[in-house]
Amino acid sequence: MNSAIELRNVSLSFESKRVLDNISFVLGEGETLFLLGVTGSGKSVLLKVMLGLLKPDSGQVLIKGQDLVPLSEEDLQPLRRRMGIVFQEGALFDSLSVFENVAYRLREEHVADEGAMEQRVREVLRFVEMEAALEKSPAELSGGMRRRVAIARTIISTPEIMLYDSPTGGLDPVTCLTINVLIAKMRDLQHVTSVVVTQRLQDVYELVKFVYSGEKQTLVPADGAATSRPATYFLMLRDGEVFFHGNEQDFTHSQNPYVRKFLT
């Protein structure tokens, strides 16, 4: 399987503080990686490094085989078009309506056909079940709705890699499930490579033990599902270093006391 994301010995410091220390991992196409760790362990920074929003001090960040570290802001744009990120609070543009937020990327790509644009915006908003909020402003939306719109804004250009920065952080359990269903939907229907930053074991459980069924339009237990999904990996950061890296089996059966804290 080709690698979608590969990090080789990535290190980054902010002034004298080491935020990422020699991080390396490989994630294949369609696979899912859960980034775990306590607050301030470097998870969000690592996501930004993967997207080229932050440049590491040393190491390589390969996206689909291309190292993005030496690339200029302009040269990064074609790579970024193949990726999407959902920020912790959604990061919707306050001055734009939901429609304009979602259509943002299409406008940047100078899509001239307004009719086709509206159709596409409605389609992705329907995908996240937010079509009714088309004309609303971000200020009128709840936290969960903002994140669903943020997902819609990201997937409008059908990215091959999705990065989620604590997509369920601070949300109620019902909304968390809705967000997780969307992540699973992207993963299982569109075979998107996913990196999910989370501190909730419930997210991990829902996304590992269940798959999205296009037929039933909801999550179904992975054991009984007709289709298998690509592997899921876990990477735990501690003080900017990789503390644990392994697959589902390694993670759930780990006897390390620090890892066990996340499992209980």
Partner: peptide, 18 residues
């Protein structure tokens, strides 16, 4: 500044805008 702290500038860059 508000756009920076609410990550809207990062989102802008991620969406392909300088």
């Amino acid at each position: 500044g508000s756009m920076v702290v609410s990550e809207q500038v990062d989102a802008m860059r991620a969406l392909g805008t300088d």
